[in-house]
Design a protein around this nucleic acid. Structure first.
Length: 302
DNA sequence: ATATGGCCCTGGTTGC
DNA sequence: TGCAACCAGGGCCATA
């Protein structure tokens, strides 16, 4: 499943090939099954130029400049099986095709499980906070039609500002220090920190020797700081290796990642712990309804 | 504030 | 071999 390193891998692949390209046409061949969300008509994006491609958490963001010199954004949430591929990749799972001005150049969005989202918005930045969520709920009862519309418009703004590769250790502490609940549940909570998903939560917790169900409030500042250091190290390492190709993930040029070869707990249920001198067997459990892997000897609850 | 479970969806795996 | 049941889970939502 694409997490931060996979999104970053895709972004790097796209940057190398389609920066400064012009979008000639946009097609949604399976509009019955996949509906992008628009703040304004898709026509406004035609003939626009791609001026930047970056990532926020697990989302890939393409910034364009329209013919009227207006900045617009295309936010792509890859979900579980989303792929952004350069070239001709038209099949029954292709939901969006962007023809670009480079000869024969296309950008295709494939997503077999259809958990992915594509949003055409004026601004991607996170200006939507929990208080507004509350007012939106009231609106749902009072005026259902307006609610549906606002929900659509506001969805892109639910992206929070924190990104493990962009925040400082101090900021990380301010989010997690003395927080209640299980550490893995908090790591997966994208309202707190964007980018960490199931694989990298398991792998980083193993590296820091923290049990996935560890109560956060019982962890010392030092322990959390150490964890943050290891998390960033693992994410960077995974980016260097082109991400983890577990089921569907490939980079923009259809290349496989290699970080799955470095996994020490994820998907290794029942196998021997890889830490030298440890005889533990990797256990499987469930946290936040996500399958969770850890070594019961290395990662003890305190 | 935190926890839980359902929903969306398809492809791969398991079991009879 | 065939077919059905089950599982994978990111993000969102309702409910407790």
């Amino acid at each position: 499943m694409p997490e931060l390193p996979e999104a970053e891998t895709i972004v790097r692949g796209l940057r190398a090939h389609i920066l400064n390209s012009r979008i000639l046409s946009i097609d949604f061949p399976r509009a019955r099954y996949f509906r992008p969300q628009f703040e304004e008509p898709v026509e406004h994006y035609l003939e626009s130029r791609i001026i930047d491609i970056f990532r926020h958490g697990k989302s890939v963001i393409i910034q364009v400049k329209t013919l009227e010199e207006a900045e617009r954004f295309l936010v792509i949430r890859l979900g579980m099986t989303g792929q952004l591929l350069l070239g001709d990749h038209t099949d029954r799972h292709t939901h969006a095709i962007f023809c670009l001005d480079s000869p024969g150049m296309r950008l295709c969005f494939r997503d077999s499980r259809q958990f992915g989202k594509m949003l055409f918005v004026k601004d991607w930045r996170p200006i939507f906070r929990s208080q507004k969520t509350l007012s939106l709920r009231h609106q749902k009862k009072a005026a259902p039609e307006a609610y549906a519309l606002n929900k659509l418009n506001r969805q892109p703004f639910t992206l929070p500002a924190s990104d493990p590769l962009k925040i400082s250790a101090g900021e990380f502490l301010s989010i997690f220090w003395k927080r209640r609940g299980m550490i893995k549940a908090a790591l997966l909570n994208q309202h707190l920190l964007v980018g960490v998903g199931n694989i990298y939560a398991d792998e980083s917790l193993f590296a820091a020797r923290i049990h996935p169900k560890q109560r956060i409030q019982r962890l010392s500042k030092q322990r959390l700081l150490k964890y943050f250091t290891l998390l960033v190290k693992i994410l960077n390492n995974a980016i260097d290796l082109g991400g983890s190709s577990i089921s569907d993930f490939v980079g923009a040029t259809n290349v496989l990642g290699e970080f799955q070869l470095e996994h020490r707990v994820y998907g290794r249920t029942g196998e021997k712990c890889l830490r030298r001198g440890c005889s533990g067997l990797i256990k499987h459990t469930v946290v936040s309804s996500r399958s969770t892997h850890y070594c019961p000897l290395c990662q003890r609850r305190i």
